[in-house]
Design a protein around this nucleic acid. Sequence first.
DNA 1: AATAAAATTGTTAGCGATAACATATATCAC
DNA 2: GTGATATATGTTATCGCTAACAATTTTATT
Lengths: 352, 352
Amino acid sequence: MSQGSGKTPSKRPLTLRDVSEASGVSEMTVSRVLRNRGDVSEATRKKVLEAARELGYVPNKIAGALASSRVNLVAVIIPSMSNMVFPEVMTGISDVLEDTELQPVVGVTNYKPEREEAVLYQMLSWRPSGVIIAGLEHTEAAKAMMGAAGIPIVEIMDTDGEPIDSAVGISHRRAGRKMAQAIIDAGYKRIGFLGTKMPLDHRARKRFEGFTETLAKAGLEVADSEFYSGGSALKKGREMTEAILTRNAEDPLDFLYYSNDMIGAGGLMYCLDNGIDVPGEVGLAGFNGIEFLDGLPRKLATMDACRVEIGRAAAEIIAKRVEEGDEAAGEVITLEPSLEFGETLKRKKKLI
Amino acid sequence: MSQGSGKTPSKRPLTLRDVSEASGVSEMTVSRVLRNRGDVSEATRKKVLEAARELGYVPNKIAGALASSRVNLVAVIIPSMSNMVFPEVMTGISDVLEDTELQPVVGVTNYKPEREEAVLYQMLSWRPSGVIIAGLEHTEAAKAMMGAAGIPIVEIMDTDGEPIDSAVGISHRRAGRKMAQAIIDAGYKRIGFLGTKMPLDHRARKRFEGFTETLAKAGLEVADSEFYSGGSALKKGREMTEAILTRNAEDPLDFLYYSNDMIGAGGLMYCLDNGIDVPGEVGLAGFNGIEFLDGLPRKLATMDACRVEIGRAAAEIIAKRVEEGDEAAGEVITLEPSLEFGETLKRKKKLI
DNA sequence: AATAAAATTGTTAGCGATAACATATATCAC
DNA sequence: GTGATATATGTTATCGCTAACAATTTTATT
């Protein structure tokens, strides 16, 4: 009743031996058939496959991995699953790994370094073939583990720093600078910044640093800022926008730079709801380039973070090194995020 | 240089034996220390821990799992990561499993049954302690595998059907009926439906079935419908809304039921942008209760799908059965989704 | 037909840990 | 101090599979 389709109502879990006995060949041959390795005659292959199917046998990779010391798992360690950016990175990773024997296994750290360390330890204890991990900032212990693991490590999202091994990402400092330059060029002067509380979001922090740095060169600075954590980002975006605009009513802000598109979208909606002229009275820009923006009443200016591409590239590095060995260790790929002006950031006024 | 903090610049991967030698006790004792099992004197415990840390030893769970035939993994198989609903389910699962030894491992099927079967096979080959899988519809082979796996299986999201073992979810038929009733009560008559192409989205299909069924009882039917697949859901929502409203301009629709909140939000924005009175001229409702809605200009009516709660309950079932054995097999938990009227669905006009 | 080369199958010895049992050392009652 | 109970540690035998090599059968070559 409880057993699938097989005839054996046994309790003991099935092993290669069962299939071997059922098909009258050695365990080794069964193993070969099931893995498509080595030469096996068509006749026995069919016999074995039939028996395995009949019994409902599922190979035990635990044993297989131990015996062969090959584990087709790639550890993917990311801070969060719920913010729309990592799912896209995952898409890129999955796309590439689907064509290989490798399989991604995801761990989530919630932006906590100590959690990252624990997750990494857990993951490494399964002896994966490679690690893809977000960010360049890790605890010392985590760095040590990755350094000693003897497998390809790819740090993603960010290339502003020293990778342990390989890295794929964008320069968030540069992204911040680039956006600042576009804002300056468009003639905005009184600029507000809205973002997450950043102690642990290093990439947001770096963007902010690049941003202020370029403003400074133009003799400008961030006039005011607003931070949040948790909650509905869209709503927070609204609320923060209202707060920051109200607070600066006397000497009004003319641009708001958001650390992500979701709060930016909230801000945009607030402005539209309140009859604020965007981008004339106030310009807006976010960060990430999420697909979502396409549906907004007005297209928010943003900078694409190349998420899918980062995932793809990272997975390709792992796949290649698993396949061909570690000659290419230490590769760093810096992608160039593209600025999308959308309809909330004026174009450069004029040259000269 | 490449080795973390250890002194051994070796190439060979570390094993218990290395720690054993470094600390001068048997492998078994090291194993006991590292797992906090059995009595070990404080002195040796410290010695061993020190040696392990020094070497940068990470236990090999592959070997451990094989020897103990205990694998602290829970396979979680879901159709998609990118639609905001499963990340929340994952949150619920993680919350619960964090307090146990169990660890979730996610597989994504992209709504393809054959992909689901393959993912399941992969997962089962790691001999997880349990499976949490979305939906009640699976290939015959998949059902057979789960039936024969001898581990707790929890099918989530949906309870309209026959579970293999346990199930946690809501009745989507009932959710559809409930929404239909609210719409009828509010006095809407010309109702449009907008959703994904549904051949494989069984839950959307069931909601639709329940919906039409209840309409039928009130002598109503879905006046027109519109389907999409892929792309920015928000944008699609806009486009479809425009299309369906335009198409029915002569005999205008007065309600639009969307199969998810994201396209509903798009529709809402379209209506607001075009000066359509919501909910007077046209009422709107979505499905899911995503947090996101809080930030919209007007709160969309929706029905909460209890996502986090489903995740929690499913994880609890697994955890309990891993802990206490399989007496409680076959448990089915049906949660009751709550209708949220928001500001896009008129309340019941009056009784009688 | 005889021998070499290729294709197919089998045998043996681990992979690195843990369960179960065995042994040694410490603690205790009397 | 002696035997007994508890605490700490060590030994041995797997766990289910695969690498590496051995043995056998088939096919090709001359």
